[in-house]
Write a protein that binds this DNA or RNA. Structure first.
Lengths: 139, 139
DNA sequence: TTACCTTTGCAACATTGTTTCATTTGAATA
DNA sequence: TATTCAAATGAAACAATGTTGCAAAGGTAA
C-alpha cells in the first residue's frame, strides 16, 4: 500500500510531511527515531509539523510510538494486520530494544496478554518493552 | 528501615538530598514524579543534584524509574523484598498508570514473565506498563 | 582534626515538546 | 477548471527536561 493510499484509507489529508514520514518508515522496515526519520525526509522536515503529524498519524492508528526510555523514542508503522478502513490498529505486541545497536524491533509474535488486575482496576492499553541484545549483536 | 539505614546498607554516602528523596518516597507509599518529590523535599531540592541522585539511587537499586510516557516519569522506592546488603533489586513487576488520576501503582502481584524471544535474542530487562482506570477512578 | 575523595550547586548548554497566529494548501463543490 | 473553506504548515517564542564542567562544600575514614 502506498503512503497516499494509507492516508486516503484513514480519511486524512495527503500532505508532503505525512507522506514523507510514512515513506521513511516504509523504506526501513523497523521503528525509527525522530532523527532517523528526519534524515530520510530531507527538505520536507519541520520539527513542529513533524510532532503534529506524529500525533495525527498515531491517533489514526497508522503508526505507534514506542517509549523505550524518556530520551529514547521510536515510531513504528502499524503493519496493517488489518487493512480495513476503520479498524484502528491496537498496539498489541511487545517491543525489543537492543542495548548494543540501539535498534527497536516489533515482536509481533509476543502478544500483550490480558493481565488480571486487582479488583476495581480496568486496563485500556498496555506496553511491554524487552531490553537486551538482538541476534546481530549477540555475536 | 530509615533513609539513613538504606544508604548505609548500600554503601552510599549519606547526604541531605538523598535522604530527602528517600524520605519523600517513604512518606507516600506510591511512585512519585519529580515535582511531587520536589514539593516534599522543600528547601533541599536542587534540579541538577536531584537528577544525579536519582541516577545514583537507581543504579544502586534503591529506587526504580517508571517511564509511563516520555513526559511522564515516576520514581518508586524498591520495596525491599530483599533487605540483603548486596542484593540489587531487579524491577520484576508490572506498573499501572491511571489515566484519570495520573497515579502510578506497583502491581507486585503481576510478575514480569520470561518472554520466549526469537532465536538469538537475549533479554536483560523488561518493563510492563498497564494503562487504564484505577479502583478509585472506576466509579 | 586532618585529608581525600565524593557530592553539591551554579552557569551554561542541549534536547524535547507545545502554543499562538498569520499564511498556505488540500480537496470538495460549483 | 476555478472557487471556497477548513485543515495544515511554518515561524517565533516559550516551557520542560536533562547534561556537562568546574570550583566550593561536605562526608567519612584514619
Amino acid at each position: 500500500m502506498t503512503a497516499t493510499d494509507v492516508l486516503r484509507h484513514h480519511n486524512i489529508k495527503k500532505t508532503a510531511g505525512r507522506i514523507a514520514i510514512i515513506k521513511a518508515l516504509q523504506e526501513k522496515c523497523c521503528p525509527l527515531s525522530e532523527n532517523e526519520i528526519k534524515e530520510l525526509m530531507l527538505e520536507s522536515y519541520d520539527r513542529i509539523t513533524f510532532y503534529r503529524n506524529i500525533h495525527t498519524l498515531s491517533s489514526a492508528g497508522i503508526i505507534h510510538k514506542i517509549v523505550v526510555d524518556n530520551t529514547l523514542i521510536r515510531y513504528g508503522l502499524n503493519c496493517c494486520e488489518s487493512t480495513h478502513e476503520h479498524n484502528v490498529h491496537k498496539n498489541n505486541h511487545a517491543h525489543f530494544y537492543c542495548e548494543t545497536c540501539h535498534s527497536v524491533v516489533c515482536l509481533q509474535e509476543i502478544k500483550i496478554p490480558d493481565f488480571s488486575l486487582p479488583q476495581g482496576f480496568v486496563s485500556a492499553d498496555s506496553d511491554i518493552i524487552i531490553k537486551g541484545k538482538c541476534e546481530k549483536c549477540n555475536h
